[in-house]
């Protein structure tokens, strides 16, 4: 798949997809979307980049090993469930707070961090599988 058109288009396409995946992740709380589907979109961005330019640049771009990203995601999700111990409520109870950025009220919740964890788990796991498969193909 090393055509000139594809290779030229993919960096823009991949960065757009990752941007879109973050958008989907953040809107997921009130509207369709969320960590799982956002993670899938991001993972497919990495996969497309790998198809166009080879796996090594993707691994360099991700910096961390995909499995470590997945592990970090799982860790974030578990910790977001555990913080409710400080509020005296059961495991995994959603906690809400808000911060003001530029005068705009933004709601922050432990659910959001759980979802970010799910996002990372999906990105890591799917990218790990996809990159391994793409590597095997070239040999």
């Amino acid at each position: 798949m090393r055509t000139l058109i594809f290779r030229t288009a993919v960096p823009y396409l991949a960065s757009l997809m990752i941007l879109f995946s973050i958008f989907v992740l953040l809107r997921g709380h009130n509207e369709p979307g969320g960590g799982f589907i956002g993670g899938l979109i991001a993972a497919s961005a990495f996969a497309i980049y790998g198809i166009a330019n080879g796996v090594a640049p993707v691994r360099r771009a991700m910096h961390f090993h995909p499995m470590s990203i997945a592990a970090a995601g799982l860790l974030i999700s578990s910790i977001s469930g555990l913080v409710s111990v400080f509020a005296g409520v059961p495991f995994m109870t959603g906690l809400w707070g808000s911060i003001y950025i530029l005068g705009e009220k933004i709601k922050i919740s432990s659910i959001l961090f759980f979802d970010i964890g799910v996002y990372l788990v999906v990105v890591g796991a799917i990218a790990s599988i996809a990159l391994t498969l793409e590597e095997r193909e070239r040999e």
Binding site: L75, S78, G81, L82, V85, F91
Partner: peptide
């Protein structure tokens, strides 16, 4: 009560340690 957290801790602790070991 804080002691009730012992119910979920065996599972949560294993997952947390498992992810750290994976990293």
């Amino acid at each position: 009560p804080l002691l009730d957290w012992l119910i979920v801790m065996p599972v949560a602790w294993c997952i947390v340690v498992g992810t750290i070991l994976l990293m």
